[in-house]
Amino acid sequence: MTLRTPPASERARHYTVDGVLQVDRLFDASEVEAIRATFVEQVGRDHEALGADDGLPDDDVLARFPRFMQPHRRPELAVGALARRLMTDARLLDVARTLIGPAYGAQSMFYFKPPGARGQAFHQDNYFLRAHPETCLAAWIAIDDCDAENGALAVVPGSHTMEVVCPETADARESFTQGLVRPPAGMEPVQTVMRAGDVLFFHGSTVHGSLPNTSESRFRRSLIFHYVPCSSVEVSRWYLPLVGPDGSDVMIAEASRGGPCGDGWAGAAH
């Protein structure tokens, strides 16, 4: 199976069946270059300002190129202003509206994934966001051409029909994160191949992840946004405030139900 961009009129049906939708060339080359340059400048100048604390040793290449978490909350930085503007870009919100209805922005992330970096084991995004009663929607924007060699995403079409489950322990040799969710029986991962500017949208229960970047010189940079339906009544507190389509802050209730690992599970930043 290969992911292909369906006609606009088929997007909702395609997403309902597979829980994943690839839209090619949503952003043009000049836009992608501006995104890449802005984030590269920031990581070169100060990689700790937005970097996630993943507990990595100093000799791990990801300690020098950490994933940036919630840059849209730092509008005083160029990366923050850019992320906040793109989170509410009409092209992303239009696709989100087609798939889940009117949506709020919940999260922004930027991954650098340089050569030699470990991947991220299969997981489900709504394990972290805990959006209710529906689920979150990821918009994964390729900032570099990516494939299996440099650690592009693999997704499991159809896995969005399963519940969010408590993860097992991942193989630390291949994944920099600890959780692992195995694909449902009878469902196989599909390796994505994306060009810079393509966007992969996927359901919060869709199982997805990536292998290490085994290339010698190719980064696999990506800008990711998560959205939740405007009908959501709660979300994990780390994602509040949400961002309305007009860029305003929006508050809803903090997730109160126990997570998939039990009532004592507090969740974690993704």
Results as ranks from 00 to 15, higher is better:
residue 107 Q to D: 07
residue 226 H to M: 11
residue 120 Q to L: 13
residue 215 S to I: 05
residue 176 F to Y: 15
residue 179 G to C: 03
residue 194 M to E: 03
residue 238 W to C: 10
residue 182 R to Y: 02
residue 2 T to C: 10
residue 23 V to A: 07
residue 44 G to A: 08
residue 61 V to D: 08
residue 152 A to E: 10
residue 35 I to D: 08
residue 219 F to R: 03
residue 161 T to W: 09
residue 25 R to P: 09
residue 265 W to Q: 12
residue 137 L to P: 10
residue 25 R to D: 15
residue 248 S to R: 12
residue 188 E to W: 09
residue 96 A to L: 02
residue 10 E to K: 06
residue 263 D to Q: 11
residue 238 W to Q: 14
residue 169 T to S: 14
residue 255 A to F: 01
residue 141 I to D: 00
residue 221 R to C: 04
residue 21 L to Q: 08
residue 55 G to W: 06
residue 139 A to Y: 05
residue 155 V to T: 08
residue 40 V to F: 14
residue 132 H to P: 00
residue 168 E to R: 13
residue 64 R to W: 09
residue 93 L to H: 01
residue 255 A to T: 07
residue 85 R to P: 04
residue 158 G to Q: 05
residue 44 G to Y: 07
residue 258 G to M: 02
residue 37 A to I: 04
residue 141 I to T: 08
residue 105 G to P: 00
residue 220 R to I: 06
residue 97 R to N: 11
residue 74 R to L: 11
residue 253 A to F: 02
residue 193 V to E: 15
residue 72 H to A: 10
residue 262 G to W: 07
residue 74 R to P: 00
residue 161 T to F: 09
residue 109 M to A: 11
residue 182 R to I: 06
residue 81 A to P: 05
residue 166 C to E: 09
residue 201 F to G: 02
residue 25 R to Y: 06
residue 61 V to E: 05
residue 173 R to S: 15
residue 167 P to R: 07
residue 134 E to T: 14
residue 16 T to W: 10
residue 132 H to L: 11
residue 100 I to G: 00
residue 221 R to M: 14
residue 233 V to N: 09
residue 50 L to H: 05
residue 210 S to G: 03
residue 254 E to C: 06
residue 178 Q to K: 14
residue 108 S to M: 08
residue 212 P to A: 04
residue 141 I to P: 00
residue 127 Y to E: 09
residue 105 G to E: 00
residue 181 V to P: 00
residue 148 A to N: 07
residue 156 V to P: 09
residue 44 G to Q: 11
residue 47 H to P: 11
residue 62 L to W: 04
residue 158 G to H: 06
residue 78 A to E: 14
residue 6 P to G: 01
residue 24 D to Q: 13
residue 130 R to A: 13
residue 16 T to F: 11
residue 86 L to V: 07
residue 6 P to T: 04
residue 139 A to I: 06
residue 265 W to F: 13
residue 136 C to S: 14
residue 63 A to R: 15
residue 40 V to E: 15
residue 75 P to C: 07
residue 28 D to M: 04
residue 6 P to C: 05
residue 106 A to D: 03
residue 15 Y to E: 02
residue 117 A to H: 05
residue 78 A to G: 12
residue 150 N to D: 07
residue 29 A to D: 13
residue 99 L to S: 02
residue 149 E to D: 15
residue 154 A to P: 04
residue 73 R to A: 10
residue 21 L to E: 05
residue 28 D to V: 05
residue 264 G to V: 08
residue 40 V to Q: 15
residue 144 D to P: 04
residue 210 S to R: 04
residue 178 Q to P: 12
residue 10 E to N: 06
residue 231 S to R: 12
residue 53 D to V: 10
residue 26 L to M: 14
residue 43 V to D: 07
residue 8 A to E: 14
residue 82 L to F: 02
residue 14 H to L: 11
residue 31 E to T: 13
residue 107 Q to L: 12
residue 79 V to I: 11
residue 129 L to W: 10
residue 80 G to P: 01
residue 225 F to V: 05
residue 22 Q to R: 15
residue 62 L to Y: 05
residue 39 F to N: 00
residue 206 T to C: 12
residue 196 A to T: 01
residue 257 R to K: 13
residue 106 A to T: 04
residue 198 D to G: 07
residue 165 V to T: 14
residue 120 Q to P: 04
residue 130 R to S: 11
residue 63 A to W: 13
residue 83 A to R: 03
residue 81 A to I: 03
residue 164 V to I: 15
residue 63 A to C: 12
residue 19 G to K: 02
residue 10 E to Q: 12
residue 205 S to P: 06
